[in-house]
């Protein structure tokens, strides 16, 4: 997976609470047994005029010229709540989003982000509003810089520090594959597995 060190990009404001994964990628847009081909369906319910159609809804932020190339989304609390569909993250990634900034995230969504090289970045609602206002003055010029090793987001001439769990930071910065990482612990896992078979034998009766 690509490493996430620094990212500089246009930030699009989508400031509303509880942006759920059904909104990020509606079910009807998940047409194939695949992680690809989902970018087009990103925010389809808001981005297009009709369900299943492709006529752009002019007022939707990503359809506005200044925000078309956004790679950062600024949003409200509980972003990515709802369904566990990893398609939400695959769709964001395919569209070109690398960072979502919100006061809080759905747990499964945040986990899915980490596993796909996207950064779920937590900042307070007031700070996000401040950044959005600054960006809006000139979205293409007023780009936002995210520095993950430094845990800092720079915008409007200010630097905002953010918290991230150490494991998530490491996975992103080093671009690690979790399965390979865990497989190095194989002997320990196998020992645990055998022990469990003797400890709770009824789970292996059928």
């Amino acid at each position: 997976m690509d490493k996430f060190i620094q990212h500089l990009g246009v930030a699009a404001p989508l400031i509303r609470s509880n942006v759920d994964t059904d909104a990020i990628i509606p079910s009807r847009e998940m047409k194939r047994v695949s992680k690809q081909g989902l970018g087009e369906g990103l925010f389809a319910g808001w981005r297009y005029l009709q369900a299943g159609g492709r006529d752009a809804a002019p007022e939707f932020v990503l359809n506005q010229d200044a925000y078309r190339d956004a790679s950062i989304i600024l949003s409200g609390p509980n972003f990515g709540c709802g369904s566990s569909r990893e398609h939400a993250v695959w769709a964001l990634a395919e569209y070109g989003i690398r960072v979502v900034v919100a006061p809080s995230f759905g747990t499964i969504f945040a986990n899915n982000c980490i596993r796909n090289g996207l950064l779920p970045l937590v900042l307070g609602a007031n700070i996000i509003a401040e950044i959005a206002a600054w960006v809006a003055q000139d979205p293409c010029q007023n780009k936002v810089l995210v520095d993950l090793p430094e845990q800092q987001l720079q915008a409007s001439g200010e630097a905002f520090n953010f918290e991230i769990e150490p494991w998530a930071k490491r996975m992103l910065v080093e671009g690690l594959d979790a399965i390979s990482l865990t497989q190095t612990r194989w002997q320990t896992i196998d020992r645990f597995h055998r022990h469990r078979q003797s400890l709770r034998p009824w789970l292996y009766q059928h």
Partner: peptide, 14 residues
């Protein structure tokens, strides 16, 4: 969990 985590659980049992 997500799909990637499901793959992790299937392969590593953890």
């Amino acid at each position: 969990i997500g799909s990637s985590e499901a793959e992790h659980a299937l392969v590593t049992k953890t």
